[in-house]
Simulated assay, not measured.
Amino acid sequence: MTSDLISFARGAPSLDIVDIDGLKAAADAALTTDPGGATGYGTAIGYPPLRKFLAEKHGVAEEQVLVTNGSMQADAFLFDELVEPGRAVVVERPTYDRTLLGLRQRGADVRAVTLDTDGIDTEELAALLESGVRPTFAHVIPNFQNPAGYTLSAAKRARLVELAEAHDFIVFEDDPYVQIRFAGEPLPTMLELDGGRGRVVYASSFSKTVAPGVRVGYLVGPADLIARIRVRATNTYISPNMLAQAIVYRFCVDGGLERSVATVNAALRERADVLCDALAKHIPDARFTKPDGGYFMWVELPDGVNVGELLTAAEQRGVTFVKGTDFLLDGGESTLRMAYSGVRTDQIEEGVARIADALGSLRVSAG
C-alpha cells in the first residue's frame, strides 16, 4: 500500500472544515457563563439549556427530548426499549451497517425494504404490512441516507406516517444529516407531519454539523417513551457529557452553528461535484445518483465485479472505501459507498483514478 492513503471510507468532516476557533469561543463562553452546569454531573436528560433549545426547535415539550452522547447512543437506548426478540423491525435496503448490527444483536426479525432514489419503497412496505407483518418500528434515514445519499420524498414521508397510524407501528426518523443540504429545498420532518400523535420518534446529532468529537445527539418522542429511556440513561451513565453539551449549546446560540453549516455545505457541494465528474471520467460504466446533501454516495458497478476483491486491489493502490455488502443482509456484491466528506477536493480525482486502475486489474485477471 502507498503511504498517502486516500480514504472514501469514513463519514466525517475533514479538519479543514471544522470551526476550531468557533468551538474555542463556545467552550470559553460555556465555562464563563455556567461553570457549574458545564462541569457537574447533571442528570440523564442532558444539559438543560440545550434540551430546552432543542424542544423549541422542534416545537415540542421539553419532556419529549433527551440529549445523549451522540445519536448512536440515542439509537441504542431506543432499540433497548423497543426491540423484542423475534419481532419484526423494518429497515431500508441498504441501511447503515451499525443499525443492522444493533438490531441483529438484540434479536430483531429484520425486514429490509427496497430503497429507491426517492426513499424507501412505501408500496413495498404497504404490501409487507398487508401480508400480516407487524413491525415494532420502521427505521428510516430520510435525508441524504447513509449509505446511499438518497432523500425521502415529501409524498413518501406523508405515506409512511399514514402507514404507521394505520398499522400501529413507530417510524424511527434517524436524521443526522438534515442540515447538510447543498441543493434543493428542505422537506418537512415526519415528526412534524405526525402532528403530535406519537407515531414518530426523531433522532439527530451535532457530529455532522459541529464536529464528530463532541458526541452530542438527541431523541425526540412521546413523553412516556422518553421517560422510560431516561431511566435507562440514568442507569447507564447517570448523565451524559455535560461539558460537551454546554459547548454545543453556546456554539448554537452564539451563531457558530449557522456559520459551520454554511462552511460544511459549501465544501461538500464542491466535493460531491468533483466526485461525480471523476467517476464519469474514470469509471464511465459506474451508476450513481448525485446527492443533494450529506456525506455519501452509493455507486453500482457492472454485474460481476466483486467489491471485496476490488477493495483489496484498491487498498494496494492507496485508496479505500466501504463495500456495499456491509450495508445489506444479502446481495450488493458490485456496490460500494463513497464518502466525500473527509477527503480534500484535490485528492478526489486521484482517488477515483486509483479505484479505476484497481478495477482494470481485476478485469485483466478475469481475462
Rank of each mutant, 00 (worst) to 15 (best):
I229W: 02
A280G: 14
T209V: 12
K290F: 00
G294P: 06
N265W: 03
C276K: 01
T209Y: 06
D224W: 02
N241P: 07
C276T: 07
R228H: 03
L311S: 09
V253H: 08
R215H: 14
V261T: 11
R337H: 02
P222T: 05
D330F: 01
T234S: 13
R287G: 11
A313W: 01
G332M: 02
A223R: 12
V253P: 10
T320K: 02
V322E: 15
S204M: 09
P222R: 15
T236L: 12
E315I: 00
K323E: 15
R228W: 03
E333R: 04
F321G: 04
P284H: 08
N241A: 11
G332S: 03
T234R: 12
D277V: 02
K281A: 15
R250M: 06
T289Q: 12
Y340C: 10
L279E: 10
P302Y: 06
E300S: 12
A313I: 01
V214M: 15
G294S: 09
A244S: 15
S260H: 02
E309L: 06
A246W: 04
Q245R: 03
F288D: 14
F251A: 10
G294Y: 04
P291G: 09
T209H: 07
V261H: 07
N306V: 01
E315F: 00
T345Q: 13
Y295Q: 12
L301V: 04
D330E: 14
Y218M: 07
G304W: 05
A266N: 05
I247M: 14
L301S: 08
L243Q: 10
A233Q: 13
F296S: 15
G332W: 01
A223M: 04
P240D: 13
L275D: 10
L311E: 12
L225H: 04
G304F: 05
P284E: 12
A272H: 04
K208S: 12
L329N: 01
S239A: 15
V210G: 11
A266L: 05
G331T: 03
F288R: 10
S205N: 13
E309G: 02
A267T: 03
F251H: 14
A211S: 13
V274A: 13
Y295A: 11
G332V: 00
P284Y: 06
G213Y: 09
D292K: 03
R259I: 02
S205V: 09
R344Y: 05
G332K: 02
P291C: 08
T209F: 05
D273I: 00
E333S: 06
Y340Q: 11
K208Y: 11
P240A: 09
L279G: 12
L279A: 10
V322F: 05
T345C: 09
R269S: 14
T312V: 05
P302D: 14
G294T: 03
L219Q: 09
L301P: 11
S204F: 06
V307W: 00
S205K: 11
A266G: 08
A246S: 14
A244E: 14
P291N: 10
P291K: 07
S207I: 00
A211I: 07
A211Y: 01
G324D: 04
F251E: 13
V343L: 09
N235M: 09
A262R: 11
L257A: 07
I226A: 06
P240W: 04
Y218T: 05
R317F: 00
S334Q: 14
G331N: 09
A223S: 15
C252N: 08
K208A: 12
C252A: 12
